[in-house]
Design a binder for these strands. Structure first.
Lengths: 138, 138
DNA sequence: TAGGTATTGATAAACGTTATTAAACAGCAT
DNA sequence: ATGCTGTTTAATAACGTTTATCAATACCTA
């Protein structure tokens, strides 16, 4: 899983990281693929998956396993929380203080060795708010 | 998505709900399928998926979209938090107070209409703690 | 009992992700 | 430069989970 030695900084890896860093959204592997493909039309989807996974393992990027079916990736590795729009599925950062102390609370309340936590809010983004004013929401 | 009228309480639905209610784990659809199949050997996997989805829509059960590849289901619908073992993937409840006030904090810090939140802790369960004492952890 | 709707089981299809593989490539020592 | 060695790639196949399709069946109402 972790191999720092002999890990090359290839053009593909560089551009994947660059493109991911450009956006504040939290793109899926497929979305990253689309972004990267504009600059490297011959890149394979497998390469994108492989390297996103690799970078997440090494800790250069963050792999989010949030609601919805796809994994999402984030160039910001500092701990922070997320909101997911229940309507369109988009994920944004939420800039509120990280509750580090609840890890200890959770550890006391369980017999797990707690390593960390993540908070995912669910809501309706302003875009969908406008569109689906009176429409069904889910 | 939501159809309360003309929704029949079939044997299949009854047993799916019964079996899910029996366990405190948070089984995947496949695990529910296995449990139910012991009592209804001819039930189809599709039926299990369809009805778990349906019950979650109606609100009888909870669909958890936690880390890992599969969705998990929970007969306890009252809001509560979860821990996921990073080693074996199992999900348990964490019995700590639900932080309802952070929804408002989050709403102020974003332009989402916040509907709710979920906290997922990650850690190592006692089982894996024993086994992989000095082993790699992921 | 007959007619209409809801539901089922079986199967196929869709979707996201991971594994496989031959070819291309980078670095290094001759 | 040339060849050696290991890494990475693109393409493709395989995989696991979930959803859709559909004919057959079960249930409800009259």
């Amino acid at each position: 899983m972790e191999q720092l030695p002999n890990m090359r900084l290839t053009t593909q890896r560089q551009i994947i990281l660059e493109e991911l860093s450009k956006v504040t959204s939290h793109p899926t592997a497929n979305e990253v693929y689309d972004m990267v493909r504009r600059r490297l039309p011959r890149i394979g989807l497998g390469t994108v998956y492989r390297n996103l996974e690799l970078m997440a393992d090494v800790g250069v990027i963050l792999k989010l396993e949030v609601g919805g079916t796809q994994k999402r990736f984030d160039a910001t590795v500092e701990p922070h929380y997320h909101v997911r729009c229940s309507s369109c599925g988009k994920v944004d950062d939420i800039d509120i203080a990280v509750q580090e102390q609840i890890n200890q609370v959770a550890e006391k309340a369980s017999n797990y060795k707690i390593l960390g936590h993540h908070i995912e809010f669910s809501g309706i983004c302003s875009d969908c708010m406008g569109k689906n004013q009176e429409t069904d929401i889910n």
